[in-house]
Write a protein that binds this DNA or RNA. Structure first.
Length: 817
RNA sequence: GCCGAAGUGGUGGAAUUGGUAGACACGUCGGUCUCAAAAACCGAUGAUGGCAACAUCAUGCCGGUUCGACUCCGGCCUUCGGCACCA
């Protein structure tokens, strides 16, 4: 390209700043629009995968401001996290220096790219003025019973030496490092997200502009199931066991009961010595097993008989009580009723221990062979006393009513969602603002003492020891109890970084507030987010957490809306040639910085946008640069000839101009629709089409016409290649920036050409085409079609039976032979 | 196993939502310019047959609905995501 792109880039980046183009204006006359891209973890320079996210946002930003919106478009950094600590361990670089350096590199790339962000609102989660409020949120949750401590077997990553939340375990591997997860019994902090399970589920109904697949993923993750909890008396004791089932229609088929090894009921029962040992051995073995062993569906189901019997309240039948590690402790009551005939797991277990299989449901029109598997579908009940011979769905209702009436149990709902484990044995995160006092127990740090500051990293030993690095830092750990004044200890753990990112969208509205987390009025005015752009990989992590925290803050009166983001767009991932996701850890990341230095921002943007629809994954290839580069050059060369004066209105003077005028209108329509639909590739393609036509017909078009067309063309192209567009626009000498103009409207009367091509089909196959006046009537068209030599040829061998007429499109002649 | 998305030229991808399949672009081939090359520009480019007009085949596979199917329906196959003993 002949132009000095670098100079051009700098010039316009500076101009835009002078014009405050990136700022939310707080203009009451304009409609507010909050546009947000998921912020990034600063792990070095940004790569093409990150850039896609930001560029998509920037295109929409520019388009929205040209459409008269007052747009809030902030940016920030998800700056706490493990890699910073990894750098400290491996290379001796301090986490804060490493992080701030990465932020500096990445921000400079974003600024160089000319992306319009309001940098005054920048939020960095590792800064004191931010994590102070992360800690404040923790305390609010604690005060309202939503943060609690619990001892349990947690997911432990032996390599990262820290616990993980359920959402951070992928196929029993650590989401960060891929190590196999083990179990460890620890007392940890949890957020009671489960008490919001129903709200999180119901809220999805409000999210009309969220992709259906994300909502489905969240629904499945929350996993609501309705059923009944039934109590089984343990014979010879005064104790009982509750089980949850969604299939009370199979309750007459119960032939054993099974509890999870972790179930407390075992501790409450007495056993003779031998039995006790057997059970304890089994429990110990189960708990030690890794999750992958224990949860493998391949694994043979085993258990141990407790020696106790339970009584089925519905038919008085005695059934054996087992301890089984295929029963999950964290779900329902941690105990299940075993119905081997109608549940595959129970079936396998029963086969192994020779437990009776009683059929209570049969298929509607056939028999079931129980030699291989259980019959798990619905059907007709049998062997169920007065509930026999019914549709299982009806029986389910009736038996549930009966159970409730008799007091054997009651209807209940269970969720698959678990409480959110937020303690991390890490240094580089927000310290949990709690104090452990021997006298007073757990005491929150008083609000006026927030933030609990992280000690200088130079004083901290990061070597992984399975404990938080902070626990060995005496000055940090030792405090006075705020209640009684005696010696006490701080909580040594820091919060999961997903806590940090669960509220940043709120802080952007009022980022400098040092009195409170944010001003309610401001947040209520600017939120919810109107368009949230980010990857689908966050469906069951971040996107649930940030909905949760928003709802909590609403309930506590700090804001007034139910959902944080009304529309969500998932951009596709950028992959390398081998189809692997681009990432720093995979070593296949193409950094943006050098790329922009070499090719310039506009070319980088154009290439990334033309690669394919923004919602789909795309393979990164530099081949795309050639096409966009030629296009930019052609645009530059052409537009530069016609940008000297401004013809505001122009009426096409000849056929060619009319044709191109129609094309222009179609392009305006398409580009607008494509930006809103995130189909930037087709928007650019339509601009290319128009430019190709203009080149072809240049000789037949007047200067005024071209001047008029190229003005609009420059506006249309500006969201995609803003620097070059500005440079062209400057020639018109009208406003300070093309982005201060109004997005062009298309002339609805001129979206179709007067002469159009009609297709003539014979028996459904295209045989001829003809140029004809728009809106030609059916009769006329038929007459024309029949006079076509091609049609005449076909008519020699047959008669016209009928025809199908689609206005302005085609005529299909049915000819029989 | 269950849920979701997708399968179109040598390649990335279009197709007004049931109406000209392959827009736009890359690549390749041919040409113009040049001493030459690059760039730029012009032309060709799904496959097969034919000198040609043209014909036949072609949107993962097999069926169906329809005047007409990449698009709708039924059944498979493959790839990629998500979940995975949730009772």
């Amino acid at each position: 390209m002949e132009r000095d792109l670098k100079r051009l880039q700098e010039k316009w980046n500076r101009r835009w700043k002078e014009l405050s183009l990136e700022k939310f204006k707080n203009d009451p006359k304009k409609k507010k629009y909050y546009l947000l891209e998921m912020f990034a973890y600063p792990s070095g320079d940004l790569h093409m995968g990150h850039l896609r996210n930001y560029v998509i946002g920037d295109v929409l930003y520019r388009y929205r401001i040209m459409n008269g919106y007052d747009v809030l478009h902030p940016v920030g950094w998800d700056a706490f996290g493990l890699p910073a600590e990894g750098a400290a361990i491996k290379r001796g670089i301090e986490p804060d220096k490493w992080t701030y350096n990465n932020i500096a590199v990445s921000s400079s790339t974003l600024k160089k790219m000319g992306l319009l962000y309001d940098w005054d609102r920048e939020v960095i989660t590792c800064r004191e003025d931010y994590y102070k409020w992360t800690q404040w949120i923790f305390i609010k949750l604690y005060e309202n019973g939503l943060a609690y401590r619990k001892k349990s077997n947690v997911n432990w990553c032996p390599s990262c030496q820290t616990v993980l939340a359920n959402e951070q375990v992928e196929q029993n591997k650590c989401w960060r490092c891929g190590s196999e997860i083990t179990k460890k019994e620890l007392e940890q902090w949890y957020f009671r997200i489960t008490s919001y399970a129903q709200r999180l589920l119901d809220g999805l109904e409000l999210l009309k502009d969220w992709p259906e697949n994300i909502k489905t993923m969240q629904r499945n993750w929350i996993g609501r199931s309705e059923g009944v909890t039934v109590e089984f008396r343990i014979k010879g004791t005064d104790k009982s066991i509750k089980v949850f089932t969604t299939r009370p229609d199979t309750i007459f088929g119960v032939t054993f009961l099974a509890v999870a090894p972790e179930n407390d009921i075992i501790k409450e029962l007495s056993f003779d010595k031998e039995k006790k040992e057997e059970i304890e051995k089994y429990i110990e073995k189960s708990i030690k097993k890794s999750e992958i062993e224990r949860s493998s569906t391949e694994k043979e189901k085993d258990g141990v008989f407790t020696g106790y019997y339970c009584v089925n309240p519905l038919n008085g039948k005695d059934v054996k009580l087992f301890v089984c590690d295929y029963v999950l402790s964290g779900y329902g009551t941690g105990a299940v009723m075993g119905v081997p005939a109608h549940d595959q797991r129970d079936f396998e277990f029963a086969k192994k221990y020779d437990i009776e299989i009683i059929q209570v449901i049969k298929p509607k029109d056939s028999e079931w062979d129980f030699s291989k598997s259980a019959y798990v579908d619905e059907g007709i009940t049998l062997n169920s006393l007065e509930f026999s011979n019914m549709d299982s769905s009806r029986m389910r209702e009736e038996v549930t009513d009966y159970i409730e009436k008799k007091g054997y149990g009651k209807r209940s709902v269970n969720y698959r969602l678990r409480d959110w484990l937020i303690s991390r044995q890490r240094y580089w995160g927000a310290p949990i603002p709690m104090i452990h006092c021997k006298e007073c127990g757990i005491v929150p740090v008083p609000e006026n003492e927030l933030p609990v500051l992280l000690p200088e990293s130079s004083e901290v030993d990061f070597t992984p020891k399975g404990k938080s690095p902070l626990s060995s830092h005496k000055d940090f750990m030792n405090v006075k109890c705020p209640k009684c004044g005696r010696d006490a200890l701080r909580d040594p753990d820091t919060m999961d970084t997903f806590v940090d990112s669960s509220w940043y969208h709120l802080r952007y509205a009022d980022p400098k507030n040092d009195k409170r987390i944010f001003e309610k009025d401001i947040v209520d005015k600017l939120l919810p987010v109107d368009m949230y752009i980010g990857g689908a990989e966050h469906a069951n992590g971040h996107l649930i957490y940030f909905r949760f925290i928003t709802k909590v803050l609403k309930d506590l009166g700090f804001l007034s809306f139910e959902e944080p983001a009304m529309a969500l767009f998932n951009q596709g991932m950028i992959m390398d040639k081998n189809g692997k996701v681009m990432s720093k850890s995979a070593g296949n990341a193409v950094p943006v910085g050098p790329f922009v230095d070499k090719y310039g921002s506009d070319l980088a943007r154009g290439t990334e946008l033309f690669i394919g629809p923004a919602g789909k994954d795309a393979l990164w290839s530099e081949d795309g640069i050639t096409g966009i580069s030629r296009f930019l050059e052609r645009f530059d060369k052409f537009a530069s000839k016609y940008n000297k004066l401004l013809v505001k209105n122009y009426t096409p003077k000849n056929e060619v101009e009319k044709k191109l005028y129609v094309k222009l209108n179609r392009t305006i329509k398409q580009v607008g629709e494509d930006i809103e639909g995130f189909n930037h590739n087709t928007a650019i393609a339509s601009l290319m089409e128009l430019l190709n036509l203009l080149y072809k017909e240049e000789q037949n078009l007047s200067f005024e016409f071209l001047n008029f067309v190229m003005y609009k063309y420059t506006q249309l192209i500006s969201p995609f290649i803003p620097h070059l567009a500005e440079e062209i626009y400057e020639g018109y000498n009208e406003k300070d920036s093309v982005f201060l103009t109004c997005w062009p409207e298309y002339d609805k009367e001129n979206l179709e050409e007067e002469k159009i091509t009609i297709v003539i089909q014979i028996n459904g196959k295209v045989r001829d085409r003809m140029e004809i006046e728009k809106d030609t009537t059916e009769d006329e068209l038929l007459k024309e079609a029949l006079s076509s030599p091609v049609v005449k040829k076909y008519l020699q061998d047959g008669n016209l039976v009928k025809h199908i007429y689609i206005p302005n499109r085609l005529i299909n002649l049915i000819i029989n032979k």
